[in-house]
């Protein structure tokens, strides 16, 4: 019961924030990916940095349970699937999470995205044995460094994983600050700027 309450609270907070940062808006995604307005990229980089610093900082202080981590397997299909997701993401301006949220805020094109997504997921369910036989789904759950208390193999075993996580988190935050909002000198169209 408690887990369902948490699902509702954290899920609603996530959907709320995705909407507030412009991620449910395909215009903001499109302008980030065609490199005309990197505001959303700065938001995402800062978010990854903040989450990373809090997670690993909390682990080092003993406040965050290492057992709550869930590292996914690295295999060839991750890269192929990533390429596919990138293509469809740029075409549509939606990814799975922002697509369902865009549908919820009343975007009709997001309804078609979600319908296509359900069909795409079904197609994968049927074709899964083919990929499995190709051997591109084999791999390990690897992290960058060795994380104390977790038994994930490390890409760099001599690297202390929690320190590496802190450092990389800090690097994401620095990049978020350095990255310009726009590359082009052309002024942004009216109504495409965030609140200060």
């Amino acid at each position: 019961m408690m887990t369902i309450v948490l699902a509702i609270v954290i899920g609603a907070a996530f959907g709320f924030v995705l909407d507030r940062i412009g991620a449910t808006n395909p215009n903001w995604i499109g302008r980030m990916l065609n490199l005309t307005n990197l505001h959303l990229m700065k938001t995402i980089l800062l978010a990854i940095g903040v989450a990373s610093v809090l997670t690993f900082g909390g682990q080092m202080l003993g406040l965050v349970d290492v057992g709550h981590m869930s590292v996914k397997t690295a295999y060839v299909g991750v890269f192929i699937g990533g390429l596919m997701l990138g293509l469809g993401w740029a075409m549509s301006g939606f990814c799975p999470g922002t697509g369902v949220c865009a549908l919820a805020v009343g975007r009709i094109d997001a309804l078609f995205f979600v319908a296509g997504g359900l069909l795409g997921a079904a197609a994968y369910m049927l074709s899964y044995p083919v990929w499995k036989d190709l051997g591109v789904l084999e791999g390990d759950k690897i992290t960058l460094g060795a994380i104390p208390g977790a038994d994930y193999p490390a890409a760099f075993p001599d690297l202390q994983g929690d320190l590496a996580g802190l450092a990389i988190g800090a690097a994401f935050i620095v990049i978020a600050f350095i990255l310009p909002r726009r590359f082009s000198r052309k002024k942004a169209p009216a109504g495409t700027q965030p609140a200060e």
Partner: peptide
């Protein structure tokens, strides 16, 4: 786009939230 995104996400075993955000913030 939705078809390609979800086919790709399932092949990859995750999407923008699971792999990119959650994954990178765990140094996966």
């Amino acid at each position: 786009g939705g078809f390609i995104v979800l086919y790709g996400a399932r092949l990859a075993g995750g999407c923008t939230s699971g792999h990119m955000m959650s994954g990178m913030s765990q140094t996966a």
